[in-house]
Every structure is written in C-alpha cells, then in structure tokens.
C-alpha cells in the first residue's frame, strides 16, 4: 500500500492533518524537491514528484536502450583485440552484480521503514544501500583499470572499447549519482527535514535506484553472460 492508495479514498486521516503548514515549513532546506510539488494536488491525484520520476525513468529507458543497442550493433565488428571474451571476468562481475542486487533490497527496506515512521532504520538502510553502491562502483573502477592498463583496451582501441566503456561508464555514473543522492536523503532525514508523511521523497529516490539496478540486470545478462553463452 502506498501513499497514493490512501490519497484515493478521499478521507482525511489523522496524520495528514499536518496539512500545508507543516509541510510547507519542512519543505525548506536542501530538499530541492520543494514543497510546491508535494502540496499541490493535480488532476491525476498522484504526487507530482513521483510522476516526474517515472517519466524521467521512462526517458532513461531510451537512454540506456540506445547505448545497449549500439553496443550490440558493433559487437563482433572490432578488427583488433582484446575482444569481450578475453577481458570479461564472470567471477568478479558476479560479485559486484550480487552487491548491486542486494542494494535494491536495502533500498526497498529503507522506503518501507520510512513509511512505517522508523527513521533510524530508514537512515541505516539508506546508508547500507549507498555502501553497496560504492562497492559496485569500486569494482567497476577496478575493472576499467584492469582492461585499460593490462589488456590495453582504451576507448579508442576498437568498436568494442568505445561502445563498452560508454555504456557501462554511463551506468557507473548513474550509480555514483544515486549514492550521493541517497546520502543526501539520509542526511535530510537525520536533520528532520523529511518526515514520514513525506516518504514519497525517499520513495522517488528509491525508484531511481531500483531503475539503475534493473539496467544492470540487463547489462550483466546480455553483455557479460551472453559472451560466454553463445
């Protein structure tokens, strides 16, 4: 059950009586989602910030879709090595994949804790999620370094190099942005700037995080595993 579901029934609940005043007050600070989009009702009776997030993620689908399609379009077209099968390490990538997958779990728990007004747990889960994200990015930095220094695969080396680094690099950048975002959200909860009634702020950050995870689910299977499966 989400905040939205309650909104639909049209009846006021005790907790919602904080109303505009409270919310407006809390809306200041670094939380640049502002209070406007939270307070303001709209035609579809959904929180604007959440609608905005889903729409943004829709455009992100096309963004990563293009990068993945381009990678496959030029796959097996490189005329100089190293080729994917020579550089990929399933063992290492499996570990980082697992870490990212688990971060989606902690993220879901963070939102759940926020909605249950367990602020301490919410903060802990957000920080855990950010740590998992950092581990994932560290693995990627190691991977890139290994490819670049030891396997002599640069961005300009081959079509594989160009398309691979662009695709996975943008994904890693998304994870990095997500880590910073989650830490900021945890900080705002800590300072009391995000109350459980405004869990939608945490939920929206969570949507972004889960999205980044599903992009990796696709990249891991299609790009890494398929290389050894065909």
């Amino acid at each position: 059950m989400s905040a939205i579901a309650h909104a639909d029934d049209g009846h006021g609940h005790g907790h919602d009586d904080h109303g505009h005043g409270h919310d407006g007050h809390d809306g200041h600070g670094h939380d640049d989602h502002g209070h406007g989009d939270l307070v303001e009702n709209n035609y579809m009776k959904v929180p604007n910030i959440k609608l905005a997030m889903w729409t943004f993620l829709g455009s992100e689908c096309m963004f990563f879709g293009s990068l993945i399609a381009t990678y496959f379009f030029y796959l097996d077209k490189s005329i100089s090595g190293p080729l994917p099968a020579e550089v990929f390490s399933i063992e290492i990538t499996s570990i980082s994949t697992f870490v990212l997958l688990m971060s989606s779990y902690t993220m879901a728990l963070a939102v759940d804790a926020m909605k249950s007004a367990k602020l301490g747990k919410a903060k802990l889960m957000l920080v855990l999620t950010a740590i998992c994200g950092t581990i994932f990015v560290s693995f990627q930095v190691y991977e890139f370094w290994h490819f670049f220094v030891e396997k002599k695969l640069a961005l300009q080396t081959s079509l594989f190099g160009s398309t691979f680094y662009t695709m996975t690099g943008f994904h890693g950048a998304h994870v990095t942005v997500g880590v910073i975002w989650l830490l900021m959200v945890a900080g705002l909860i800590h300072k009391g700037n995000i109350k459980p009634q405004r869990a939608v702020v945490v939920e929206s950050a969570g949507l972004y995080w889960h999205f980044v995870d599903i992009v990796w689910i696709i990249i891991f299977t299609f790009v890494y595993l398929f290389e050894f499966a065909k």
Binding site: A3, H6, D16, H18, E40
Partner: peptide, 11 residues
C-alpha cells in the same frame, strides 16, 4: 486530502 502525503497509521 493531499495525495502527496503518506499515511503512517494505516501503513
């Protein structure tokens, strides 16, 4: 009733 606000009590 504001749809952007979450109802803790019934969650």
């Amino acid at each position: 009733m504001n749809p952007a606000l979450h109802d803790v009590a019934s969650y």
